[in-house]
Design a protein around this nucleic acid. Sequence first.
DNA 1: TCTATAATATGACAAAAATCATATTTAAGA
DNA 2: TCTTAAATATGATTTTTGTCATATTATAGA
Lengths: 143, 143
Amino acid sequence: MLSKSSKYAIKAVLFLALNSNDNEKVMVKDISGPINVPQAYIAKLLQELSRKNIISSSRGPKGGFYLSEDNRKQSIMSIVDVIEVEKNFNSCMLSLKECDENKPCPLHKILYPFKSSIIKNLRSISIKDLALEVELGNTFLPL
Amino acid sequence: MLSKSSKYAIKAVLFLALNSNDNEKVMVKDISGPINVPQAYIAKLLQELSRKNIISSSRGPKGGFYLSEDNRKQSIMSIVDVIEVEKNFNSCMLSLKECDENKPCPLHKILYPFKSSIIKNLRSISIKDLALEVELGNTFLPL
DNA sequence: TCTATAATATGACAAAAATCATATTTAAGA
DNA sequence: TCTTAAATATGATTTTTGTCATATTATAGA
């Protein structure tokens, strides 16, 4: 469904949403533990996200990663867009070259509606939205 | 979503559904071309499916792969079950160890309903069903 | 301006998934 | 019974994805 990298990235971003702001930054070494992802690996993902302005960072002493208010408004899908190399989401369920409404593959009719709903959802839900649910105790972000 | 292998396997099985029966078998070399999958690779997948009785085979001259009437009754999901090594479908969307209705991860509420619908669909639809749609010209199975 | 501390950039390495190669077994037909 | 044609079993190779290591760059604070 989602690649490991995407899952890691989403966890890290949500962690930042819950534990950082413009004045309180978090260092990679303090992120990797709680979200249970190898430090060097999550560092790389965070760098990519930072470069693409999904999250914010500053280096040097007192530096670290954090989410600005603007960052928080972005959708969950925007995280996936950055991390996912191949766009599995947009491709045909059977990986046929020509597969669309006019010439659907056998799985298209069955699965496409679900898939497009999923994508629509991930695009419409912001980082902030998801973080709020965790804060309210409606959802959980354990190891 | 589905691994390449699963997609290849589904394509091959549908091809067999459309082009074989108990008296008309198809050799791997005559399958790989039409479905556009490397011969040696699809051979391996077909062998696995045959071992797990999703499809039928006989060796020697006049041998090949084919689908019996019983084979055709099986669900599309049964193909995936055989091929997919890791059960991506059953795991949490964020790969958290403990994630269920009682303690849902942030993505659970959003994505789980879709995911379970997809699985339910793939379990309820038989190979025969999908093949029929192609025969009726409602769906297509090109390269 | 110097030092320490943080991210960044780059690339090496490991594990998993996909692909390829080949020797063995089975069965049809002469 | 022999030959040939097919799947089967096994494992090697390649590619992709995930993981790790380290030298470089930027910045806060003394």
